[in-house]
Design a protein around this nucleic acid. Structure first.
Lengths: 161, 161
DNA sequence: CCGCTATAGTTGCGGCTTCAACCAACTGCC
DNA sequence: GGCAGTTGGTTGAAGCCGCAACTATAGCGG
């Protein structure tokens, strides 16, 4: 036990192998997410964050969700959701309505136009996720990656926040 | 063979399990990268992209790299590198000098102040990568993730365009 | 019922990124 | 040697995001 003691300020640096792996993940995921976003913008005039919000709304009863609920589902700040929903509203894809049960609350509701746009964009998006990501992974790898980041997210939401 | 035929415009949707895994990865990596960025800004007044550039320069001979080389190493657009290096230059962490062997070229060079800042920030950054990511993963998982995204990146740089 | 604190959401500003347009220098080819 | 196309890099505008400050409502204890 004695030799493994570390003070809080010591840093466990990465060895060469870990460096390579970390940078591969960083570079690969960066390139991947950028590409998804570009495709969506070019073909459907939607950003990834905008698309994600439309997806969550489309799955909710009445196509409606509280702002805070949207925020927590897509893992974005409340402020960001406000900004993004405002843009979507300006584009006519989403509507805001005040929440009956809570005077502070605001509901975001998908419009028909929003649903139409989402249906189109989904082809591009899912196609990209498959081509760029899943088609380069085995089933097992994909499973491992999903499970791993589930833990990462749980950890950050738990003690992290 | 007959029943598996697909036209180019058909979309292979994700089943429920794939959806869950994909969203876990998306949400987890989003939360993770956001946290890394926040930590760096709060404690060292550096963004992740800025930090990444400092790292690459610090590893180059003469602490110097061509702009395009920086861009390709960190997987960012040239324009983005121009902007980010300009900010770093304004902060005195990097200097620009014109490239002797190619009249179009511009070298970015780390300054002593830049190296000092990088040394401080590295503790925060690596600590975050370990705590938020690696400590939640087994060795095998980390290896798999690194290798997988190496392929993803290669694929995007290759046939991508 | 009052006041205190916590929560929901918005706002404005400043910083970061993208895109398209642009200039300049290199390359190859006739 | 000069023109055509390519590559390296920058620029400015517009969009996107984070942060801190703010308003308003909810909930709770006295």
């Amino acid at each position: 036990m004695t030799s493994t003691t570390q003070t809080a300020t010591d840093t466990r640096w990465l060895d060469d192998r870990q460096q390579r792996l970390w940078r591969s993940f960083l570079g690969g995921s960066t390139a991947f997410f950028d590409q998804l976003d570009r495709d969506l913008r070019r073909e459907h005039d939607l950003s990834m964050p905008e698309y994600e919000i439309l997806v969550r709304l489309s799955e909710a009863p009445e196509w409606t969700l509280r702002m805070a609920e949207v925020a927590s589902q897509v893992a974005h700040s409340r402020s960001r959701i406000t900004h993004t929903v405002s843009r979507l509203e300006r584009a006519g894809l989403v509507e805001r309505e005040s929440c009956l049960s809570d005077g502070r609350g605001v509901n975001a509701k998908l419009t028909d136009a929003g649903m139409d746009r989402l249906r189109d964009a989904a082809h591009t998006h899912v196609g990209g996720v498959r081509r760029y990501l899943m088609d380069n992974l085995t089933e097992e790898e994909f499973e491992i990656i999903g499970q791993a980041f589930e833990r990462v997210r749980g950890d950050l939401n738990g003690q992290g926040f």
